[in-house]
Amino acid sequence: MTITQFGVAGRFYECPRWHDGRWWLSDMRDHAVLSFSADGARREEARLSGRAGGIGWLPDGDLLVVAMDERQVLRRRAGGGLEPWADLAALCGDTAGFLNDMVVSAGGHAYVGFDADYRLYPDRGLLIRVDPAGRASVAARDMAMPNGMMFTPDGRSLIVAETMSTRFSQFSIAADGTLGDRRIWGDLAGRIDRRPAGRMPLPAERVALDGCTLDAEGHIWVADVRSTCLRVAPGGEIVDSVDLPDGLIAFACALGGADGRTLLVCGANDQREASRLFTTRVPVGAA
Rank of each mutant, 00 (worst) to 15 (best):
L127V: 14
E83I: 12
L126P: 00
P153H: 07
D176P: 05
F114H: 01
A90L: 12
D87S: 10
Y118D: 06
T95K: 14
V130R: 10
T95F: 05
D142A: 06
N100Y: 03
A175Y: 03
V103S: 00
T152Y: 02
S172F: 03
R129G: 05
D176K: 05
L120Q: 15
T166D: 11
A96L: 14
G108D: 05
G125D: 07
A144R: 15
N100S: 04
P132M: 07
A144H: 14
V103R: 03
T152C: 04
M143Y: 08
D181V: 07
T163G: 00
I173K: 00
M150V: 12
P153I: 06
A161V: 07
S105H: 13
L91C: 04
V73C: 02
D117P: 14
Y111N: 04
Q170V: 11
D94V: 12
Y111P: 01
D176C: 12
Y111Q: 07
D123F: 06
G113T: 07
D131L: 10
G107D: 15
D115L: 10
G81I: 14
P153Y: 08
L74P: 04
R76Y: 02
R156I: 05
A86M: 10
A106C: 13
S157L: 01
F151E: 01
D181R: 12
L91F: 09
L99C: 06
